[in-house]
C-alpha cells in the first residue's frame, strides 16, 4: 500500500501559502517524504489568489497571518468564490476568535502549527480515498 499510496500521491499538486520561508520549506520537505510534490510556496495573500486560480492545485495549505494586506482567510474566500479548490487552514493558535473569522469559508480542516507528517498523512490519505 505504501508504494501504491506514493504512486497516487505523486500526481497531487499542493500549494503552500505561508509567510515564513523556513516553515514553508520544512512543510514542503515533509510532504515530499509522503511522496507529494508541492508548488513553490507563496508568502502573500494576493499572490496566492493569483497562483491558485492559474495553477488550480488539488489542495491548498493556507496560513492565516501573511505578508502584505490580505490575510489567509480573505485569500481563501476569494479563491473559493472562483474555484472549487479544497483549502486547509494552518495557524499558530486555533482560537475561537479565528474560528469565528473563518466562518462561512468552507475549509476541510483546521491545523494547529507546528504541523507534522503524522497530522498530514491521514489528511492526504483521506483525500486520495485510501
Amino acid at each position: 500500500m505504501n508504494q501504491e499510496f506514493k504512486n497516487i500521491a505523486r500526481q497531487l499538486k499542493i500549494l503552500i501559502v505561508e509567510d515564513e520561508i523556513l516553515t514553508a520549506k520544512s512543510l514542503s520537505n515533509d510532504l515530499k517524504k509522503l511522496g507529494v510534490e508541492t508548488l513553490d510556496p507563496i508568502p502573500k495573500g494576493e499572490t496566492a489568489v493569483e497562483i491558485a486560480l492559474k495553477e488550480k492545485p488539488d489542495l491548498i495549505l493556507m496560513d492565516i497571518r501573511l505578508a502584505g494586506k490580505m490575510d489567509g482567510i480573505e485569500a481563501a474566500r476569494i479563491i473559493k468564490e472562483k474555484a472549487k479548490i479544497p483549502i486547509l487552514f494552518m495557524t499558530g493558535y486555533a482560537t475561537d476568535h479565528i474560528k469565528v473569522k473563518t466562518q462561512g469559508v468552507d475549509c476541510i480542516e483546521f491545523l494547529e502549527k507546528p504541523i507534522t507528517v503524522s497530522q498530514l498523512r491521514p489528511i492526504i490519505e483521506d483525500f486520495l480515498g485510501f
Partner: peptide, 12 residues
C-alpha cells in the same frame, strides 16, 4: 540559500 530565501521570499 537560507539567507537568500529569507531576504527574497520573506522580506520581499
Amino acid at each position: 540559500q537560507t539567507v537568500k530565501d529569507l531576504v527574497t521570499y520573506q522580506l520581499q
